[in-house]
Write a protein that binds this DNA or RNA. Structure first.
Lengths: 377, 377
DNA sequence: CGGCCCCTTTGATGCGTTTCAAGTACAAGC
DNA sequence: GCTTGTACTTGAAACGCATCAAAGGGGCCG
């Protein structure tokens, strides 16, 4: 069962090679009967075009690549979802690679995508948004997600710092005296969230803050370990508010605390950060900041499309979404700020399971409490 | 910034084209100094090999494709995770495509992967595991996941029917009198789960069972809608046990019920099916059957590797994992049953958040209760 | 009947690699 | 000094397809 190629189809159908190619790519150029004949032959033979050859000959495919640090964070999934829908809307395919929290792998997949003649590539980078200098020379549109990177470059950033601030505001509003933040330090976005927390707490020197590194994976197990450690402290050294920089971490902490007989949220409040789908739905009594992942994915693809469609446009374009506010700010190097759009608010506080609401469509609904977002506008 | 190709590198480094190619693929064949020189040139120029050309010329890439019906189901993510780890172990890349619950898209991506000279392709199909006849002629190793398909073919199936049975057993054990099952009918695996439930209830004609189609997406919103509808029924028509064929559905139901003042699990018990990561971790008071997705992904890649490494071997190979039992059964056409391995048990009942345990490594830990799994061995 | 034009089909060319048989340079052995 | 061998390196030939200039065929007009 040697692979069937276009020439086999051509011979079998009694037409020339170029005609079969046209049947595939420019069917309108063929006489209907010829087209029909060819299609039948294709089906009969089970011919499948060799994508590599197509790309080589044709120059590009209508597909985008997306490199994600991990698949089990609700936030990344929302990015994937937004990107997927937007890409399909433009007739593009979306291929996803999981870098598995490994920056070498991230780089690997990135190069892979760039070398595959993808029409564009997106990354949610873990640490180093700033590219190997030579990389910038590569003529493949690229957009960085969830991070700001230095010029030249396109990015769509959620304001991670603001997410931290929001969580901190919440903690303050709930009367926290001692906050523990749990998360993987090497993960840049998380570091920004921590920064935001620190900034928000700057005016509250009486509130004690402590940051615990969650190890390499940010898994529930890591969270559990830390939660257990917290539970074993004497009551007066125990925090009254724990921030999991990731929903999974947060739920691991909750799990450990309750296991050890410490009640959540009565004795210790726990908040996450990810907007995991299960959190919206109300089954999880987890307070979480939900960064607008869906929007970010969507915008990312839009930025890719812009680069594809009018190359000569602005070299640099940045979009910051929901920077702790409810707007999308689009900044073009040449134009300055040019647009603001309404975006879903993104703090979801769950005190009980009582305030859950369904989301209307495939898009996530994120209920919100009114913790003065205005301050960050 | 025209694209830099291998010949540019060769010219710049003063060696021949073939030598640069060797530097990339068979570095051991080169004199160390030559290799060094070439690598420096590559970096200086920012050269990135054209994957399409490589694939065309080389015949294949060391990469697998995985088509998933959706990214937001914990189960699919576990498959991806297992497949990823196993693939990397063998030095292969894994590319993931999201079919978004659309069988046309599923087919599209499948063809795409097959045509990309992937070394192998895996699908978690939604409906039609049985291929267009011509498809079987295509010489790309393919493995179906989470489903059984007719010969010839390789698959790794979780026993969905058994998952249904297990849930039903649980319901019976908890004294259910009226069970409502919620899920998208068109989704084959879900249908099997329903079948399992029916079978388990065959001996209990006194237990009323009702199946509600969840619409197209199986989202939390769908679950919420159905939950709301259930909540509005008069008390005596209301079920005392709801099965969400998906964790997200289940949590949507929980959300609606609690919103409407019906307490879970006191008045109505709700169970899911997916083993969502957040469910393991203890933040979610959700009873769920956790199919061994991680194992399935792993096995899938192993089957791909077998096909790659010894082509002439058995044409058909089926693996059924954790068929409601704790074993992996490997069946080869020629050999019959030949192996059994221990696998994690997979029922996770959460009555409260008290029984959560961390999972030891990146792999999911699934606590279990002892609801006679033995019966299904 | 010849000339023109339009619609359709043809097939040679090149895309950027890998591969591999053939080549080169150099060292060791006689 | 010649041969044999070793260690690298070379470059031409595919890989399967899209493209596009050119050829073919048919209808229409003069």
């Amino acid at each position: 069962m040697a692979k069937i190629k276009i020439s086999d189809v051509a011979r079998e159908a009694g037409v020339s090679l170029g005609t079969v190619s046209n049947a595939l790519n420019h069917p309108e150029k063929l006489r209907p009967e010829t087209l029909k004949l060819i299609n039948e032959t294709i089906n009969r033979l089970g011919y499948l075009p060799n994508q590599s050859a197509r790309q080589l000959a044709g120059g590009t495919t209508k597909s985008f690549g997306l490199v994600l640090p991990r698949l089990d964070h609700g936030f990344s999934l929302q990015i994937a979802s937004g990107a997927h829908n937007e890409a399909r809307k433009h007739g593009y395919d979306l291929l996803i690679a999981n870098a598995d929290n490994d920056d070498i792998l991230e780089d690997h997949y990135l190069r892979y995508f760039m070398g595959t003649q993808m029409s564009g590539v997106m990354v949610q980078p873990m640490a180093s948004p700033d590219w190997h200098p030579a990389m910038t020379k590569i003529p493949v549109p690229i957009v960085h997600l969830d991070i700001r990177c230095s010029e030249p470059g396109y990015y769509v950033a959620a304001d991670n710092e603001a997410q931290g601030r929001i969580i901190a505001e919440l903690a303050i509003a709930r009367g926290a005296r001692h906050i523990v933040v749990v998360g993987r330090a090497a993960f840049m976005q998380l570091t920004l969230r921590v920064l935001g927390i620190h900034k928000a707490l700057a005016l509250h020197p009486d509130i004690k803050i402590e940051v615990i590194d969650a190890g390499e994976w940010n898994t529930a197990a890591d969270g559990y370990g830390i939660g257990a450690q917290i539970a074993e402290r004497p009551a007066d050294e125990r925090p009254d508010f724990v921030v999991g920089l990731t929903d999974v971490l947060a739920s691991g902490v909750i799990s450990a605390l309750t296991d050890k007989g410490i009640s959540v949220p009565e004795q210790v409040r726990v908040a996450g950060c990810d907007g995991n789908p299960l959190a919206w739905s109300g089954a999880v009594p987890l307070t979480t900041v939900a960064p607008p992942g869906y929007e970010i994915g969507r915008k990312g693809v839009q930025l890719l499309m812009e680069q594809i469609e009018d190359k000569p446009a602005a070299k640099t374009k940045r979009v910051r979404i929901g920077s702790a506010a409810r707007t999308v700010t689009t900044v073009t190097a040449s134009e300055g700020i040019n647009r603001q759009e309404l975006v879903r608010p993104f703090l979801l506080e769950r005190v009980s399971t009582q305030n859950a609401k369904p989301h209307p469509t495939g898009q996530p609904m994120v209920p919100t409490t009114d913790i003065n977002l205005g301050a960050y506008l």
